[in-house]
Amino acid sequence: MIRKRPITLTVNGSTYARDIEPRRLLTDFLREDLGLTGTHVGCEHGVCGACTVLLDGNSARACLCLAVQADGRDVTTVEGMGEIGALSLLQEKFRKHHALQCGFCTPGMLATAHEILNDAAPLTDAEIREALSGNLCRCTGYEHIVRAVSEALSERLGGAATGSAPNAG
């Protein structure tokens, strides 16, 4: 039996203290231990980006992070970005532009897009594509995702943003 270790971390604004195996992945911790199944697992080797969350405000692959490494840190998952009836700016734009189909890659895509918005630098479509290139989507062909992120970014830069996520900075 592997000895468990205590960790305490903040997820979507709530503090959780748990004893967990050191080898437990952050994805499994979020999904199975906290029931936050919005974070999806697509490859477990850091390529597809479906598991991307915000770790201390920056995008990170939850599948390449041990839960013990998140001890003391602040995690934002898709559940913390907005809710039904109160979607974040990005979530609204994703819906408006049909930037999701099956929705499996979407939580990770949103986390990456969040960091793009947080960086608050004007980007061309080509630069947005490059910034999103760590998140594979198999349904949309990316076209509508680029439009959604582009519009959200220009609204953020234009100061027109409303209803943004709590950790949007």
């Binding site: 199944t37 919005g38 697992v41 898709v78 809710e83 979607l87 979530q91 929705g103």
Partner: peptide, 19 residues
Amino acid sequence: VQRLEDPRLLTGAGGFVDD
């Protein structure tokens, strides 16, 4: 028409088998 599926999928409230 904006999709009726989207609010749940955009907020992590979808229900895939592994969920």
